[in-house]
Amino acid sequence: MNDVLKIDGLHCGYGRSKQVLRGLDLQVAPGKVTVLLGANGAGKSTLLRVLLGVLRPERGTVRIFGQDPLRAHRAVLQRIGYVPDVPDVYPWMQPRELFRFLRPQYPRWNDALCSELCARLSVPLRTKFKALSRGQGMKAMLVAALAVEPELLLLDEPFAGLDPLVREQVLQGVVEALRDGERTVLCATHELEIAARIADRVAVLHDGVIRKHGTLAEVLGEEEPRQVPQALHSMLAATCAAQVGS
């Protein structure tokens, strides 16, 4: 079976002095939800920026749908939906302007789905992003990511800093999107509770490399799902401590 995402020996950083990813390897199978766990500064966002073609790897290969996202940027990115940790669109833009602007960029843009999601998540369409709350902005970004009907959904800590009500709404939106079994998700987060709810597989990123990767059962042993957040916390702490000790 072909992996949707295949990364080999990825090195990336911000200048010579700040190496973030140091030989990262990762495969993501189609139709699976992979949660990328890691502490702040572990390199989760950097990895996603490499996948989006925003950053150029220093070494290693990245293949999404079998193609290099830098060389075949249009072909690859048209099949990817992305939700950043904070809205990265123009502050003067309104959500309806954003959707209009994105429509010609993505051939699979679904206007009906967009309208439905906006209604369900109560996205204010005529307010500029700079005037939206963080939660409203994130909901609009989630709509923009899902309306392209992506085959691969990249989520960069979309739930961080949201109040519980909005967080539940956004999470619900993600869960709804996951009902289509063909959709592959790579979600970077450090919220273990959410990871426990949506993850098929877990990858632990620490110090620029994937320390552990597998199903929840493989990563945590035989733990019951309701104990998963605590188990994940223990596993993360142990992984980090082991690395510091070594």
Partner: peptide, 18 residues
């Protein structure tokens, strides 16, 4: 300069072949 928002100019760079 107008491309720079909350996360530098990532938006225009992450849009497909934009």
């Amino acid at each position: 300069r107008g491309e720079f928002g909350a996360k530098d100019d990532q938006f225009v760079r992450r849009l497909p072949g934009a």
